[in-house]
Design a protein around this nucleic acid. Structure first.
Lengths: 106, 106
DNA sequence: CGCACCTACAACCATGTGGTTGTACGTTAG
DNA sequence: CTAACGTACAACCACATGGTTGTAGGTGCG
């Protein structure tokens, strides 16, 4: 696991970042477009995007002088799987659950 | 939503806390039992449990002089649902997705 | 070309976080 | 009753976080 679960959960633990994620999952948006949508400085939004990027929840591609932010769904899938693992563990139906939970710290 | 998604994700954004969660989901354990399992002070583990408790991921019940920590699976289910919402959104199959994602900030 | 726009990044500040130690209090065992 | 155990909480520290402003570099429009 190249990006830790820590990074993904931490990235998701902020309402602004979750909102940014929903926007760019719908369709890519430039950093400035995103920045205009929130009551904070451009730099602040840029930092939020950086956090999402470090968690691999978004990626950026250049388009002219703009940087377009795209949503990446794969890390979300991994987290969903992790949470499902906890749930299954709770239901005592643990078959192969240990393995899923251990991918966590790889 | 009485406990914010922020709290749940933040609680999960730490390997020690996720490990504590797996332990107590299997079966309840006292705070000291948990504390003995990690290379840190009792107080540190106690704080981790407090964070999990604030996120409603665990609850405590008294047994004699011990405080038994239990895993609560409902918040996990809510988070799984949230993540599923993002995924569905990404797949353009957005039927009622907005609603799910907005429960987020209630 | 020259200016405006988009982005990146550094410096700074207040606050929160994860860890420590120490103290205090309730409960059980002997 | 006393001693030991389990817990809670406060004070403290180093460091990360989320925000700010300012500066600088790449890109495109007129």
């Amino acid at each position: 696991m190249v990006v830790g679960a820590d990074d993904v959960f931490h990235a998701l633990a902020d309402a602004t970042r979750r909102d940014i994620l929903t926007r760019v999952i719908r369709s890519g948006q430039s950093v400035s477009e995103l920045a205009r949508a929130y009551p904070m400085s451009f730099a602040a939004v840029q930092k939020h995007v950086a956090v999402l990027e470090r968690a691999a929840l978004v990626s950026k591609t250049r388009r002219g002088r703009e940087q377009i932010v795209h949503g990446e769904v794969e890390p979300l899938r991994r987290m969903t799987r992790l949470l499902d693992g906890y749930e299954a563990l709770w239901r005592q139906r643990a078959a192969g659950i240990e393995q899923i939970l251990e991918e966590d710290e790889q």
